[in-house]
């Protein structure tokens, strides 16, 4: 009884030690982290280390497909000199596709967020629907659509507006395929950031003497920049490493770096070290570009 009275009377004199609870909570967090960390360790970090090791190996002369452990930066030199045009093409095509996807996606996302009304869900389904079919199948479908016998090339040829006479097996087809395949990754983040924007903030632009276009330029577009940033990264990064579109829609010569890596791994005996070096170089180049891009257009200050 007296003990009870003491506790009740002096609530701030006897604080229960919070230590056990806190420690338990700390361990829970680590436990929850464990499956993800294990997964990443086994399927990401280990292969990456393996790939780094392979990229430094040397070939046994005269025994194609056999290597020995080495610290041979020759593979990187080869990757950078022999395949510089492939890197340039990859970034050019990925950049073009990202730009085109942005040009197509922004008005679409804008319409979905502000103008679609009851059609919004249907439009959303249309944007997502392609994911229900495999990426490769869809790209095959594009090779049919853009084929010389297809109606696109047929119509353009009929109108005499297609120099060269075909679309398939040209860089144009590759950029078109990349744009198409990664469009949803551009639309969805932009839509999400536009949809989240408070309509009253946009109205405030009009109320403060900005006409429709000025309000878009000074309010709506800056507010959707986080979405634009996410969308361009989600489009550019996979597009730069892609080889399927080039394989199925592109020309025989003038491949992208993804195709070179693919060939070095699967088709050329003894190509592993160079393929690994190419992979690392591509990764590093993309990392640097993304870093510079985010630093330039970074929007971490945004809500």
């Amino acid at each position: 009884m007296s003990a009870l009275a003491h506790v009740a009377g002096d609530p701030d004199v006897t604080p229960a030690p919070p230590a056990p609870e806190a420690t338990k909570r700390g361990w829970t967090a680590y436990l929850l982290l464990l499956p993800g960390a294990l997964w990443l360790g086994v399927f990401f970090v280990l292969p990456l280390v393996q790939l780094a090791a392979v990229s430094l190996q040397s070939r046994y002369p005269g025994f194609p497909g056999y290597y020995y452990r080495d610290v041979n930066f020759q593979n990187y030199a080869a990757a950078l000199t022999d395949y510089a045009p492939h890197f340039a093409r990859s970034f050019l095509y990925a950049g073009l596709a990202t730009f085109l996807a942005f040009v197509v996606a922004y008005p679409l996302a804008y319409a979905m967020a502000f103008k679609a009304g009851k059609w919004r869900n249907l439009m959303m389904i249309c944007v997502i629907a392609p994911f229900f079919t495999s990426f490769i199948l869809r790209t095959f479908a594009w090779s049919q659509i853009l084929a010389d016998e297809g109606w696109v090339a047929g119509t353009l040829n009929f109108l005499n507006v297609l120099p060269g006479g075909n679309i398939i097996n040209t860089p144009l087809a590759v950029v078109a395929g990349l744009t198409y395949n990664f469009l949803p990754f551009m639309v969805l983040p932009i839509y999400a950031s536009l949809e989240r924007a408070d309509p009253r903030v946009i109205e405030a632009g009009g109320d403060l003497y900005a006409n429709g276009f000025t309000t878009f330029r000074t309010v709506t577009l800056p507010m959707s920049m986080p979405g634009v940033l996410a969308g361009t990264l989600l489009t550019f990064i996979p597009a730069a490493g892609d080889f399927v579109n080039m394989e199925l829609l592109g020309p025989q010569r003038g491949k992208m770096v993804g195709n070179v890596i693919n060939d070095q791994f699967l088709a050329i005996p003894g190509g592993y070290p160079v393929a690994a070096a190419l992979s690392f170089t591509l990764m590093a180049a993309i990392l640097v570009m993304v870093f510079l891009y985010v630093r330039r257009f970074g929007t971490e200050e945004l809500v």
Binding site: R200, V201, A204, G206, L208, V219, M223
Partner: peptide, 27 residues
């Protein structure tokens, strides 16, 4: 709205989140 000599203080304020306080007022 932008043609009228009328300004609004919106419910929940509707400040421009990407602009500083100064730029909000100077808008």
């Amino acid at each position: 709205p932008y043609e009228r000599p009328v300004n609004t203080v919106f419910q929940s304020y509707a400040l421009f989140p990407h602009l500083s306080i100064k730029d909000n007022v100077a808008f």
